[in-house]
Every structure is written in C-alpha cells, then in structure tokens.
C-alpha cells in the first residue's frame, strides 16, 4: 500500500548551514509518528517541509504518492506554481506551536475559512462541518468567541479543528503543547490522543516523551539533521541503541 507520507533523501539548507542532511522515512495510513530530538536537530524544519512551508534543496516528499513542491523540467528541479503549492498544502493539516488562530475571526470562522475559500463549500455546509469538529474538540459552546477570549488550550483545540476539518491525509503537529500553561497541556494531548485512536494519520514533533511513548506507532529520533534511530516506541524508549539517544532520554523528563 502507498504510504501517506514518504520522504526520500531530503536535504535542506539555510544559506551555508545544512539543517537536513538526507532524511528517509515513511508514514503509513493510520500511523502515528513522533519526531523527537534536541532543539536544533531539524525536527521542526522536517515537519515544515512536509507542507512546503519550507523549501527543500534535494530529495523528494510524497504525500499520498504525489511528489510535492517540485517537478522536473528538462532535467532541472523546478518549484511548482503557487496554486499547485496551495492545493498540495491542503493535503496536510498543520497545528502550530503558537496556535496562529486568525484573531479577527470567531472560532467558527477560523474553521470555515478554509472550507469555503479553499474547498469551495457553501457556507451552511461549512458551518455544519465546522460545528461537528468544534464539538469533537469540545469547543462547540465557544464557537462564537474570538481567540483573545479563549485560553491557550482552547485556542489550540480550535486550531486542531481548523486543520482537521479540511480532511487532510495527514495531520502535522509542531510542538503543539509547548506554548501552553502546564495545566492546559492535558486537554490538548487528550484531543490529539482521541483523534489518533480514531485512525487519523499523524506526524508529531514533540517534547512530551511520555505522550510519544504512549500514543505513537513509531518514534523517529533526530540528531544533527539526520535520523539517528527510528522504530517502535517500546524499543526506542526501553532499549535505545545509539549513545546519542541514550543521552537524550536521560536528560528528558518523563
């Protein structure tokens, strides 16, 4: 079966600095993959390459079997046009560390914007679908609130609804709980966990090791722009092979 996400020999540079030095990994349908590693190891950059928020310089990213971002013209690697990029981005859903809700819109309109303007859904249908997902993340009662009237945890749950309502093939979470007050982390993790249990395909960049261990099917450990080790969480967390991962796990709190 075609994997939902396939990354082959991915390289990414910021000027002289190579931050991704040949990444290979796949995510199967329904799989939950956590990317862990120290800050600066390239995990967020990798995630942002999956929805073209970052350009990359070599290698391929395939979402649902479709190569994204680039095509070959006369043997040259050319970035595809803006409309195509936008279409391909909508194949993935992204949840940001800083929530990034549109501050001038209600929770409901945050969710319906993509449905009406990208998916071309009529407003009543978009509202119905948005209500469904807001209910699913426990935010239906506050659908008419502005982001400034919501707590961080509530904003992040709206952001999850906004992303997932677009029916992406895969959900990407970029340190979704790092900006939250400690007492708000649980509600967001619980939301993510329940979506995972329903079979949503997910890639999470996270510092929540316990969560990564409990929820993931696969854990990817990154170190200095490379994947140092990957495999099922039981093996990585209980019997880490590389000394780097052993050291990393020692310094991470569970």
């Amino acid at each position: 079966m075609t994997p939902i996400v396939e990354v082959r020999d991915l390289h990414k540079r910021f000027g002289e600095l190579e931050v991704l030095k040949g990444i290979d990994f796949t995510v199967a349908e329904g799989e939950v993959v956590s990317i862990i590693g120290a800050s600066g190891s390239g995990k967020t950059t990798l995630l942002r390459c999956l929805n073209l928020l970052e350009e990359f310089h070599q290698g391929d990213v395939l979402i649902g079997g479709e190569a994204i971002g680039y095509h070959l013209r006369h043997g040259q690697r050319v970035r595809i046009g803006e409309r195509e990029v936008a279409r391909q981005r909508a194949m993935t859903g992204m949840v940001f560390q800083a929530f990034n809700l549109f501050p001038h819109m209600s929770a409901l309109d945050n969710v319906t914007l993509g449905l009406t303007k990208v998916r071309g859904m009529p407003r009543p249908q978009a509202v119905e679908l948005a209500d469904h997902w807001l209910d699913r993340v426990g935010m239906l009662e506050r659908r008419d609130h502005r982001p400034s009237q919501l707590s961080g945890g509530q904003q992040q749950r709206v952001a999850i609804a906004r992303a997932i309502a677009m029916s992406p093939k895969v959900m990407l979470f970029d340190e979704a709980t790092s900006a939250l007050d400690p007492e708000r982390v649980g509600e967001v993790l619980e939301t993510i966990r329940s979506l995972a249990q329903e079979g949503m395909t997910m890639v999470l960049v996270t510092h929540e090791m316990r969560f990564a261990r409990d929820v993931s099917d696969k854990v990817v450990f990154m170190e200095d722009g490379r994947i140092a080790e990957q495999g099922p969480p039981q093996r990585l967390f209980l019997n880490p092979e590389s000394p780097r991962l052993q050291a990393f796990l020692k310094t991470s709190s569970f």
Binding site: E82, A86, R89, F102
Partner: peptide
C-alpha cells in the same frame, strides 16, 4: 501582522 498567521493561511491551502 505575525508571519505565523500567514503560515496558518498557507497551511490550510489559501493562495497568497
């Protein structure tokens, strides 16, 4: 206007 909001728009597939 925070860059993060532009990225949030990009992420749901809006054109520039």
């Amino acid at each position: 206007v925070p860059q993060g909001l532009v990225e949030a728009g990009q992420a749901i597939g809006l054109t520039s």
